[in-house]
Design a protein around this nucleic acid. Structure first.
Length: 424
RNA sequence: GGAAAGAUGGCAGAGUGGUCGAAUGCGGCGGUCUUGAAAACCGUUGAUCUUCACGGGUCCGGGGGUUCGAAUCCCUCUCUUUCCGCCA
């Protein structure tokens, strides 16, 4: 949710930024919000004045009763009952105005950073860096789903039987590979100063609202009606919500957390392409980094996080590129996002394995996560997060890129954890 | 699932109809003292809306009600704790 004060004081800039996200009617929507805000403030002022008078009279009445001047006191009651009627009317109008304002405000997406490229689709994203060599595979190299079956390490059919499509069963060295990657990612983050968190895998409604999954992305989460809980689509939700309704100390910045969790996504509506094998699942594993940062340092922090994720992929020896998302491809809540795409040699495709974003105050405003600045004023924090990393597509590209005629070579960094160097 | 108790400021914890945004303690911040620190002492310290400002409004788990007036009384919801039951 954008801040009213920002819209009020930087109207032109806000509109310009929203236009990057192709909010073509940004000007009208912002104007509507600002005029509603004026109405709201006017009503607030009126209501406050009436209440002030009523409060004063109530105090006088109390005094009169104490002094035994019952008649005088009763006479004063007349005026208050009059005031009460206007008060009620104004309160109702005020509540309605606030509700309408809030609804309009919450439906407005975050303002992209001014450096975010304009564009409509993923084709307009800006490739900012390429790393690693794309391997030349041997004759007869196959996509990962065939490798999974060949070495019996990930069983999609069995998952279908137990649950349904998108819930694979990892077996033997496949299961060990998952465990090793999670360990590698967590250890790396902890070495970088991230505090490891093991969060709940289900969240309540307030948490969903805090990070922006609710109300708009409701259909993407698994929901448990018996208890009114949602399965988390990412550890970002429970971890960021640690700071919901919290005023942090400025000295705590940057607050850096890392969490491994299973993630659950219904992926409603994304049928068809790119769903084979590990490319799109309903349950998958991910290690997520979450940072709460001072507004002045959030973009420097975003670069640090980007470099950190790049380091992980380099250590795994995977060819990848970093993409700065254009306005059309960036998410509703994000102000700037870098995507990491790994080249999967057998599918001959770039697979998105990580998304690192700065949300500025957008989540913080919903969550009411603030800090006290040097002048003692409360200000909203900036929140950032990134996958570091999501497992399925990493596994897919490891399997595909490291395949040889007699087995899959295990990336060096994982060998000490796994205790073997080849899947065959 | 059954029974009981409870929800107050960063934390602990008073307050049962009027001057209570709320005692007190701890913590935080500032100061005195000290070579420095600790201790002690003094002062200060909730959030939010509105206003250029003075000021005013709202908030004692959420919502509703009674009353001239509610942290305090009533209704309702949610959550927590304890005991019993069940159980990894």
């Amino acid at each position: 949710m954008l801040q009213l004060q920002y819209l009020r004081e930087n109207t032109r800039e806000a509109i310009e930024r929203l236009l990057i996200k192709n909010v073509y009617d940004a000007e009208i929507r912002v104007e509507e919000i600002l005029s509603l805000d004026n109405v709201r403030r006017e009503l607030q002022h009126k209501a406050d004045t009436v209440k002030a008078e009523a409060n004063a009279i109530a105090k006088e009445i109390g005094k009169l009763f104490k002094e035994g001047k019952t008649e005088e006191a009763n006479a004063k009651k007349q005026r208050t009952s009059e005031l009460k009627a206007t008060e009620k009317e104004l309160d109702e109008k005020l509540a309605a105005a606030e509700q309408e304002l809030n609804a309009k405000l919450i439906s407005l997406p975050n303002t992209p950073h001014l450096s975010v490229p304009k564009g409509k689709t993923a084709d307009d994203n800006e490739i900012i860096a390429n790393f690693g060599e794309i391997p030349t595979l041997h004759e007869g190299a196959v996509p990962h789903w065939e490798l999974c079956a060949k070495y019996d390490i990930i069983d999609f059919e069995l998952g279908n039987k137990i649950t349904g499509a998108g819930f694979p069963v990892y077996k033997g060295k496949g299961a060990a590979l998952q465990r090793a990657l999670i360990t590698f990612f967590l250890n790396s983050a902890v070495a970088e100063g991230f505090l490891e968190i093991q969060p709940p895998l289900m969240i309540n409604e307030a948490s969903g609202l805090g990070t922006g999954q609710l109300p708009d992305k409701e259909g993407q989460m698994y929901y448990m009606p018996a208890d009114d809980y949602y399965m988390i689509p990412t550890a970002e939700v429970p971890v960021t919500n640690i700071y919901r309704n919290v005023i942090v100390q400025e000295s705590q910045f940057p607050i850096k957390h890392v969490a491994y969790s299973a993630c659950f996504r219904r992926e409603a509506g994304s049928y068809g392409k790119d769903v084979r094998g590990l490319n799109r699942l309903h349950q998958f594993d991910k290690v997520e980094i979450v940072v709460i940062e001072h507004p002045e340092r959030s973009y420097a922090q975003l670069e640090t996080m980007k470099d950190y994720v790049a380091g992980l992929l380099t250590n795994l020896g995977l060819p990848f590129r970093i993409v700065k998302l254009c306005g059309g491809d960036i998410s509703f809540t994000s102000a700037m996002t870098y995507d990491f795409e790994v080249y999967s040699a057998a599918q001959k495709k770039w697979l998105e394995v990580s998304s690192v974003s700065n949300f500025e105050t957008f989540q913080a405003n919903r969550m009411k996560c603030r800090f006290k600045d040097k002048d003692g004023k409360t200000q909203l924090v900036h929140t950032l997060n990134g996958s570091a990393l999501a497992l399925p597509r990493i596994v897919a590209s490891i399997l595909e890129n490291y395949q040889t005629p007699d087995g899959i070579i295990v990336p060096e960094v994982l060998r000490p954890i796994l205790g073997f160097d080849k899947i065959n």
